Amino acid sequence: MELNSIKPAAGAKHAKRRVGRGIGSGLGKTAGRGHKGQKSRSGGYHKVGFEGGQMPLQRRLPKRGFKSTTLKFNAEVSLTALEQLGAAEVNLVVLKQAGLVGQRAKVVKVINTGELSKAVKLNGIGATAGAKAAIEAAGGSLA
């Protein structure tokens, strides 16, 4: 094989369709554009979403909803998860290493789900009112 003899696979390349080249080509006269109308004219087209002057769908529908971009940095941990963790002192680094929260988490809150029997000291972690009561009842504290 030589560089000058390399060819594409059979059928991989085909000639570009030439329109507007006479009756015999099958695409003469209107060149596949049909008769009249904006789309038949040269340079005639419209913006994406344009509906001929009618109020477009994206403007007819009401604006709705909002998703905060900071939500991906928030995480929550249950009392059951703290019980299973079994650490006396818990902070963000410990939770990340244990895989209880994602690596991108910045704000962590303990929620009142399950039971807690061990005393746990929380550093830099929030807790709901119910969770705080449960932690303090078990002899733990929040810092």
Rank of each mutant, 00 (worst) to 15 (best):
G43D: 05
T128P: 05
K132E: 12
G65L: 04
Y45M: 08
Q54K: 15
H46G: 03
G99L: 08
R41S: 09
T113R: 09
Q54L: 14
G130Q: 08
T80Y: 14
A134Y: 00
V107R: 11
R60C: 07
G44H: 09
P8V: 10
A138M: 07
L100V: 02
A143E: 14
F66P: 01
R60S: 09
A87L: 10
L92Y: 03
S42K: 14
K63G: 05
N74M: 07
E115C: 03
Q97C: 00
E89R: 13
A129H: 13
H46Y: 12
K106C: 03
A127K: 03
K29G: 06
N112H: 15
L100G: 02
T113Y: 09
L79H: 04
G65V: 07
R41M: 12
Q103A: 15
L85K: 01
S5Y: 11
N74A: 10
L57I: 12
P8S: 11
G32T: 02
G37M: 11
A9Y: 06
V108C: 05
L82C: 04
G130W: 11
L95I: 06
L92T: 01
G22S: 08
Q58P: 07
K72L: 11
L142M: 08
E89K: 09
E89Q: 15
G99N: 06
K109V: 06
S40Y: 06
S117M: 10
G114Y: 02
L79S: 02
T70F: 10
G28V: 02
V94N: 00
Q97D: 08
G114K: 00
G43K: 07
N74T: 07
A10Q: 12
G28I: 04
R64F: 10
T80L: 14
G140Q: 01
Y45K: 07
E89C: 03
A131C: 10
A87E: 13
T69N: 12
I6G: 06
R21M: 14
T70P: 00
L116S: 03
K106H: 10
L27P: 00
R17N: 07
Q97S: 07
A12G: 06
M1V: 15
Q84A: 11
F66D: 01
N4D: 11
A143C: 09
P8H: 10
M55R: 15
E51Q: 15
R17K: 15
T69H: 10
K7D: 04
G52E: 05
A75Q: 03
N112P: 04
Q103V: 12
N112M: 07
E76I: 01
V48R: 15
N91K: 10
M1H: 14
V90T: 00
K96E: 03
G28S: 08
Q84D: 09
A129Q: 14
R18T: 09
G49E: 05
G99W: 13
L27R: 11
L82F: 04
A127H: 02
L61F: 13
Q58A: 12
